[in-house]
Design a protein around this nucleic acid. Sequence first.
DNA 1: TGAAGTTGGTAAAGATCGTGTAAAGAAGGA
DNA 2: TCCTTCTTTACACGATCTTTACCAACTTCA
Lengths: 229, 229
Amino acid sequence: MSKSELVLIVEDDPDLAEILDVHLQQEGFRTDIAIDGKVACEKAVHVQPNLILLDLMLPKLSGLEVLQFLKRRKDCTYIPTIIISAKDDENTIVEALNEGAEDYITKPCSPREMLARANAVMRRAALNQGAAEKVRKLDELEVNFTTHTASIEGKEIKLTRTEFDILWSFMKDNNQVFTRKKLLQLIHGPGVHTVDRNIDVHVVSLRKKLGLYGKKIETVRGVGYRMSF
Amino acid sequence: MSKSELVLIVEDDPDLAEILDVHLQQEGFRTDIAIDGKVACEKAVHVQPNLILLDLMLPKLSGLEVLQFLKRRKDCTYIPTIIISAKDDENTIVEALNEGAEDYITKPCSPREMLARANAVMRRAALNQGAAEKVRKLDELEVNFTTHTASIEGKEIKLTRTEFDILWSFMKDNNQVFTRKKLLQLIHGPGVHTVDRNIDVHVVSLRKKLGLYGKKIETVRGVGYRMSF
DNA sequence: TGAAGTTGGTAAAGATCGTGTAAAGAAGGA
DNA sequence: TCCTTCTTTACACGATCTTTACCAACTTCA
């Protein structure tokens, strides 16, 4: 029989975490706490919570980075996320919402409001099962995150997971330059360490597979790569 | 004037639950009440009501999730369900109807209207078992959610419940990639944990049973599975 | 202009990971 | 109980990732 929803609290301040925890449990939710971004990513992947409460100011890995990583993993994309943030940090909030956060609350936060939003967000998430497809286009190159396919002029291009992830990053934030490290982080999350020249190899094969569109992946010398219109 | 039908009221507001309860009993129905989604699922499975009145706004498990859970269980698919919902929540209502709800009423709801609809729905349920069939087709492969059957060229394929659920997920959102974790959730509801490689085993036997159509189930390496046209 | 130092492109090889599948044990239903 | 279905486990093989090495291209500075 199904159990009640599990909420993952990502918060480095133990007091606030405790408060959130208590209130959520009173409301009948199961809870889990992560005190930094790395643990948050691990737990999110592992326990597949129904909701994540994510503080943006975290040690090690910022909340935004956690969000970026999770929203790119197919098995975490659907987990709705509520941002917890200082009031004056509006830019970051906007960024987080753009990255796919569902809602936000500002510190100091009232438990009542938090609960209301948590319930609302989960309800919405349950609806969005067959949510809108995430698609990006560049002329005749089309990348579909939902189906994990890329095609040129309607013809499917067979990409490996890593190649796809890199391409999706490029297409999602067009024109943005990605450093090799950033790409590694987006692909692997925190904790895994590979040489960052490794990215070059993937970019090479991606370029090959994209044919003419491979030329759209620019090398930004000394910095990284980007894809541009 | 006693009727034998049992109505399960799923409603977290005690006052409203009481009102519905009283009126249904006056009309001669037996009743049972569940105050949250989890209890609702348990009771529905256990007591096998003839009708469910389901509030969409529930603590723990949303009404929509309850509905999804029930409609995926072979032994609950047939239980007609009337949604109770706030007037302004039209999207949810549509979703619920798509998920297989038979009718809906909006809050605040008149007992008279509720009774009328309840009677109508049960009458319909008793008469046309297979009226509103939910069917998906892929060439000659036909999957019928209402009857929980699949057939190829009219010849029925015998599937286990799990196999059917997986196939239905694939057919329902064609082309979408499903991670193993996602499929587990769809099959078991939230909270149950089995090793996700388990999915592979079901996919293998599903592919076998589907014969040529088994080839339509693609492996997306590093991600999951998907079925495509 | 060219030498020295950096940075990126690419091929190749080995290491690692993911999947298909069979088989056996566990759980559930009649 | 028996029979069906679910779940776990183990192994093999191929796909994919990672590293390394070498060369080309670019930058800097004399």
